[in-house]
Design a protein around this nucleic acid. Sequence first.
DNA 1: CGTCGTTATGTACGCTCGTACACATGGGAT
DNA 2: ATCCCATGTGTACGAGCGTACATAACGACG
Lengths: 197, 197
Amino acid sequence: MPRRHDPERRQRLIDAAIRVVGRKGIAGLSHRTVAAEADVPLGSTTYHFATLDDLMVAALRQANEGFAKVVAAHPALSDPEADLPAELARVLGEWLGGDRTGVELEYELYLAALRRPALRPVAAEWAEGVGALLAARTDPVTARALVAVLDGICLQVLLTDTPYDEEYAREVLARLVPAPGTRDGRGPGSLPPAAAG
Amino acid sequence: MPRRHDPERRQRLIDAAIRVVGRKGIAGLSHRTVAAEADVPLGSTTYHFATLDDLMVAALRQANEGFAKVVAAHPALSDPEADLPAELARVLGEWLGGDRTGVELEYELYLAALRRPALRPVAAEWAEGVGALLAARTDPVTARALVAVLDGICLQVLLTDTPYDEEYAREVLARLVPAPGTRDGRGPGSLPPAAAG
DNA sequence: CGTCGTTATGTACGCTCGTACACATGGGAT
DNA sequence: ATCCCATGTGTACGAGCGTACATAACGACG
């Protein structure tokens, strides 16, 4: 019985949980599968995470950083001069085009909040995080709308096996962003219809 | 051992499955729970639905009619004179404001398509169905965009415990609909870059 | 009436699960 | 040096699961 006194075991369990969900889905997540993946005895997982919800909260919180990393790798998203819709569409394409397993993993944990109230605060954190990032470039209402449509486009791609269409995404995102001059913080709502067509 | 020769048993099993998912979620769906809910022996569920995927496909297909019913109850959605964004926002509010269990049920089955390829065609049917309905009022690209943002708004409400804001939804939907006169079927896509900031 | 295929029923096997608990261990406080 | 508690380990129990299968009833059809 080696490996006594293993600090960071908790972290290794989270990593293992993420790998398990990535490979077998949430349905395949159990104290035992995580223990096997992390190569620790069963009792260890139940000790560090009494319930599977606890484990999922930790996993979702960590998985959320996946999209954030892609975003952080694109400083253009923070550049007020850049074409925001085009940049967003590109970043989304990069994320969806990358490792599909990772994308499905993040979304599965995210969507699990529907039935697991424990996950909802974490899901909200993510939405607020992305929203805050976008709000710096537009206004709060537009930011929320952009997050919603990003979510919606991802769902369509992931749930219906439709390939991602970056040009389509760019177009849709562009319609949500008010014309310059309207973006002064007083919020949108009165943009002339001409701006949308 | 009464009730031999029970036609429509298959249908009753689907109904039972929907009730089970509504009450305990997909995680609580099993041949046994459905059998108990429908008050039939275990062997009967395995006979009519060899796998749980079969049962879920049938259930999702039937559950999909929930939103369709709400839509059908609003003929204004087909009226070319009506304010489409406002009507959509109202219908969505009605659906989300109604029996929350039913909404969660439909969405849970819908989202399950992420990990169950068998459900993806059914999920796609739903998206295409709503899309076709909206395409009659605008153009295909706008219709897809509206479906995406409807999905996104629902997600935000269901996943983050945020109350539904009809006025916000109306505003966002309105930005996606091209101004009248542009809606001639050639589709959008050529709006000047200036509109994007 | 008799036959046959579909539908219905009951039971059993092997597996995984969450949970509980008794025991071992080792490091930090005293 | 000693004690104590957080941490680690092994095992067992009862429950639920998918699946398989032998058997029984029924209705259609000749």
